[in-house]
Design a protein around this nucleic acid. Sequence first.
DNA 1: TAATCAAATGCGCATAATGCTCATATTATG
DNA 2: CATAATATGAGCATTATGCGCATTTGATTA
Lengths: 160, 160
Amino acid sequence: MTTHRKADPIDAALLKALIADPDATNIAVAESTGLARNTVRSRLARYAEEEALRSFERRIDPAFLGYPLSAYIVTKVTQRKLASVGKALGEIPEVLEVQGLSGVSDLLVHVVARDADDLYRIAGRILGTDGVKRTNTGLVMRELVSYRIAQLLNADDAKN
Amino acid sequence: MTTHRKADPIDAALLKALIADPDATNIAVAESTGLARNTVRSRLARYAEEEALRSFERRIDPAFLGYPLSAYIVTKVTQRKLASVGKALGEIPEVLEVQGLSGVSDLLVHVVARDADDLYRIAGRILGTDGVKRTNTGLVMRELVSYRIAQLLNADDAKN
DNA sequence: TAATCAAATGCGCATAATGCTCATATTATG
DNA sequence: CATAATATGAGCATTATGCGCATTTGATTA
């Protein structure tokens, strides 16, 4: 796995171009980055192969699907039942994401809801799940910093 | 704002096709959904205009940028200093997202890091930020349910 | 029931992008 | 210096795009 050429495993300029315009054609990206068209093409193919790009689902705003409320539910779980809880949570449609945190029995459950009543119902269903000991719901009131990653493309070399 | 035709504001089939293949051409989407090409085109244009699709950044896996560690830092803040804390957090490159939770003085800070030492440094920097009273770092150990949204496209009608 | 209107459809066409191949150039690494 | 992975440049057949425009569909409303 030695790298030849300077070849960053991930090319910052290329990704920046795509961030600026997700629908840019390969040719447009090539022009804006100064790379050759075939280079853009082969790199994107490699990224796809390496799964450097996650699902398109991440780009869909839940609010536009009718789920304007977003909440994070910190969930304390009976350690033995971690797997079954994970499975049960996966069966709740409004659960977008569940991450196991350090502490072994803490889960961070990201949910969305149609309205306050809906959220109440969902939180109740989670708390009622066998193996769940305790939940703590934090409704997202506002985004102080909205999701971004572009800044990491600069700091890549300049260690901070 | 009356809707004519059946016209879902968001078309489930179209989005599903894009989830299945994010790089599908309009023509391919039209074929797989049974919609006309111009329909696909105009709908996608509308979604873009309505900002139903979020930044392309969401699709970039931080791990491929050299940040394999992900953590959520629950942060208790002096309420008066909420704005300045938000600004300060925004200046930390490894901070991907900051959300203000109900409770007014609770923030959920999503960070990534190159390694454990890096995370330690970042957590320290956040704790050292003026206005931050307390932090609680939860390192993501594994994903029990990885981000998904497709299931909401089905449950859209079938109230659960 | 008929008028109305937004969305959906179908067609055509000039322009642009794609997917591919192949030969060549470039550069980090050993 | 030799090597190997990447980048580049050119060409070409195929496909997609962007757009205009006329027509149809189906829900709303007078």
